[in-house]
């Protein structure tokens, strides 16, 4: 009985450590508004692109990796171009700022 209880306690500690670590490793979503200074995309069939935004608040340049089809299409046909102001959410994954939300602030 004692061995079973010890095993359960150890298992619980391991589980808490593992899940705690996993949660800690999850990327936080960062929000920013900034103006595009550069778009890099390779060809009409590109599945990824980078856009460099100048953060309105910090004036720092942030390189965002864009993978979603809708935004890539807007890069390809130039509905989104350098100089456009963008509202962006991104996560830092393996050192890259991966876009989760990338929208022009302006409308008609």
């Amino acid at each position: 009985m004692k061995a079973v209880v010890s095993f359960l306690v150890v298992a619980a500690i391991v589980a808490v450590s593992v899940f705690g670590f996993t949660k800690g490793a999850q990327a936080d979503e960062i929000k920013m508004v900034g103006v595009i200074t550069k778009i890099e995309i390779e060809g009409a069939s590109a599945k990824t692109a980078t856009a460099t935004l100048k953060d309105n608040k910090t004036e720092q340049l942030v390189v965002i990796t864009v993978n979603d089809d809708l935004t890539l299409d807007k890069f390809k046909d130039h509905r989104i171009v350098e100089g456009d102001e963008i509202r962006c959410k991104y996560e830092v994954i393996d050192g890259k700022n991966i876009s989760r939300f990338f929208r022009k602030t302006a409308g008609c």
Binding site: L70, D73, R103, K104, A106, G107, C108
Partner: peptide, 23 residues
């Protein structure tokens, strides 16, 4: 896409006026 070029950003921004995306 042809339609959404205008209708997506009507009213002053993306998903502002009618509040939908067609995906």
């Amino acid at each position: 896409k042809n339609c959404m070029v205008c209708h997506e950003a009507a009213g002053g921004g993306v998903i502002v006026k009618r509040g939908f995306s067609f995906t």
